[in-house]
Every structure is written in structure tokens, then in C-alpha cells.
């Protein structure tokens, strides 16, 4: 004990000397008997408390991201099918788009807690708010795809005329354009928040979401029996992009991407990426056109894309709890 006390006094003297000489003390002090006392964390933060509030999005939101994406891209596929004269795919694409729009609206409204709030969202249109753009896009897309479908079915039933034909084209083009916005605005919605992992991936999330939407739309059309080269090509490209994105996230190894690589959400991200990426890709490439393998690939991709949506939202929640993720963006670590 005596030596300990002697050491403590000597150390204090040295510190006092340093303080007198330089006006401040750089070194650590002593660890007196009775320690440890609370010490500051190695990286500065307020006791590791989060700086940001976590996103409070409910389970409906990622599902809406997914369904909205499928619906939007299906409308695009329908338009291109029309241009290339594939009547079957046109009709199926319009139906999928319409069904997606019908599912999307309740999901988006349900996550607001009180349904009437959706009307408040349509009270203003604000370009600076991705959410406002999205609410209007969903409204516009639903109307356009519904109109296109009605025109198409009326013409199929034999009541067609020139006006309806033109109207169908206009509605299809509107549906395809608003569908593209519907499938992509959700990624902008994440990118322009303060959540570090979303904000720092604002250029990658659109790729992830659109590739997921593209592949899932193709997969849904495959479920409906369109085991044609068109859907196969779409599926291969989409899963190749998903694979590439997963490789980028893993190899880049950024601190801010840690929620995508570590912990439960990290493994969820990897599971989603593996299913939608390499698993689907290999199934499609090596099994050729065997229908069982294509159905399996479609199922894998849809599940993978769905998991990926939930994983990205979950990663945002994890990221918001980590003060260092935010600080490092604003003051890059040396």
C-alpha cells in the first residue's frame, strides 16, 4: 500500500509540474485505490448514447417498398411488351401493376396509424420531400394503371374504338413513367435522411431497390406462367446486379456499412443478398430453361428482395444507435 501511495504522490507531482510548465495536462492521471472510475469512451461521444432518433417505420413500410416496386416495374414491362407486340405479357403486366397498386395504398396508409393522415399528405405537393412526391406518385400511378387496364379489357371485350386505343397508350405511358418513380423514390426517401448507413449509400440504394423491383416483377410474371426468354433475361440481369452490390458492400468495408455486415441485421442482409444474388443467378444460368428451376429461382429472388428491404430498414435502425457512424461522416477518422 505504501508503495502504491508513493507512486500516486509522485505521479501527481509530475502532473502538477507538467501543468505549471505547459499550462495544461496531456497525459492520463493516476488510477487511485478504489478505481476503476468511469472513464471516457476511446472515441468521443456522450457515453455512447445515440445522437439520432431511430426510424419508427412499421413492418408495412418495407413491404410497401417491395410491392410498389413490383407494381411500378410491371407497368413498365407492360408498356414495352405492348411496343413489341406481346399481348399476353402486356395484359399480365397491367394486372400485376394494378394489383400492386391496390395492395400498396392500404400498406402505405396503414403505417400512418390513422388513415385520414394520407389525405393530409395529398394536401400539399413538395418536391423537396421524397415522401410527398411518393404519395402523389402512388396516387397517379394507381389511376394511370387502373385506366390502362380498364381500356385494355374493354378493347379486348370488343368495344374498342380509336379514342380508347389512344387513351390506353397514354395511360400505359403514364403508368410506366410513374411506375419507375414509384419503384425508385423509396430509395431516395432513405438516402436523404440523417441515418448514416442510408445517407452514405444514397447512390447504392436506388440500384438495390430498382434491381430488386425489376427482378421481382419478372419473377411474379414467371409465376403467372410467362417462362419466356424475356423474364429469364430480366431475372439474370437483376440477380447479377444484386450480386455485384453485395460484393461492393463487403469489399468496401466502410465503418458506416457495419450494420449491413455485422450482427443479426448483417446476416439478414447477407441472406437476402445471397438469395436474390448468386443463388438465383446460378439457378438461372445452369438449369437453362427447366421450368422447375425457373420457378425456384423466381421464389428465391422474391424472398431475397423482400428480406433485403427489411434488412435495409433494420440497418438504418442499428445505424441510428451508433454515434460514431454519424461523427465519422462529418469528421472523417484520421
Amino acid at each position: 500500500m505504501a508503495t502504491n501511495r508513493q507512486f500516486t504522490e509522485d505521479r501527481l507531482d509530475a502532473l502538477r509540474e507538467e501543468a505549471a510548465r505547459t499550462g495544461k495536462v496531456q497525459d492520463h492521471g493516476i488510477a487511485p485505490v478504489g478505481s476503476p472510475f468511469p472513464k471516457p469512451a476511446s472515441a468521443a461521444s456522450y457515453h455512447g448514447n445515440p445522437v439520432l432518433k431511430p426510424p419508427t417505420w412499421t413492418w408495412q413500410v418495407p413491404l410497401y417498398f417491395f410491392v410498389g416496386g413490383v407494381a411500378g416495374i410491371s407497368a413498365l414491362v407492360a408498356l414495352v411488351a405492348h411496343l413489341f407486340g406481346n399481348a399476353g405479357l402486356l395484359r399480365a403486366g397491367l394486372w400485376v401493376g394494378f394489383a400492386g397498386a391496390l395492395i400498396s395504398a392500404p400498406l402505405l396508409i396503414a403505417d400512418l396509424g390513422r388513415p385520414a393522415r394520407f389525405l393530409n399528405m395529398l394536401r400539399v405537393f413538395k418536391l423537396r420531400s421524397a415522401m410527398s412526391v411518393g404519395a402523389w406518385t402512388l396516387a397517379g400511378f394507381s389511376s394511370a394503371v387502373g385506366l390502362a387496364l380498364v381500356c385494355h379489357e374493354v378493347i379486348l371485350a370488343g368495344y374498342g374504338n380509336d379514342f380508347l386505343l389512344v387513351l390506353e397508350w397514354v395511360a400505359e405511358i403514364s403508368a410506366a413513367l410513374s411506375g419507375l418513380i414509384l419503384a425508385s423514390y423509396t430509395s431516395v426517401l432513405l438516402g436523404v435522411t440523417a441515418i448514416p448507413v442510408w445517407s452514405e449509400n444514397r447512390k447504392l440504394v436506388p440500384v438495390v431497390f430498382l434491381a430488386g423491383a425489376l427482378g421481382s416483377a419478372g419473377a411474379v410474371l414467371e409465376f403467372l406462367g410467362f417462362l419466356i426468354p424475356v423474364t429469364q433475361f430480366i431475372g439474370i440481369v437483376a440477380s447479377a446486379v444484386e450480386t455485384l452490390v453485395a460484393i461492393i458492400i463487403e469489399l468496401r468495408g466502410r465503418y458506416v456499412d457495419r450494420p449491413l455486415r455485422e450482427g443479426a441485421i448483417g446476416w439478414l442482409t447477407r441472406a437476402g443478398a445471397a438469395l436474390a444474388g448468386p443463388v438465383t443467378l446460378l439457378l438461372r444460368i445452369f438449369s437453362g430453361h427447366a421450368s422447375a428451376a425457373r420457378y425456384l429461382a423466381a421464389v428465391c429472388f422474391v424472398i431475397g428482395a423482400l428480406i433485403t428491404r427489411y434488412a435495409w430498414i433494420g440497418a438504418g435502425r442499428v445505424s441510428s444507435h451508433d454515434p460514431q457512424a454519424l461523427f465519422r461522416i462529418q469528421r472523417p477518422a484520421p
Binding site: I73, L76, V77, V80, A81, L83, F84, N86, A130, L180, I181, A183, S184, Y185, S187, V188, G191, V192, R202, K203, L204, P206, V207, L210, A211, A213, L214, P229, V230, T231, F233, I234, V237
Partner: peptide, 20 residues
Amino acid sequence: AWSAALVSALMVVLVVCLAF
């Protein structure tokens, strides 16, 4: 963010056209 979304969307259009 919107620029990235726009580029990705154009790529999607391209892929769908190529598929046909």
C-alpha cells in the same frame, strides 16, 4: 440521390427493352 435513381431507372428501361 435523385440522380442515382434516374440513372438506375434508365438502366432498368434499357434492360427491359433489351430483354425483348
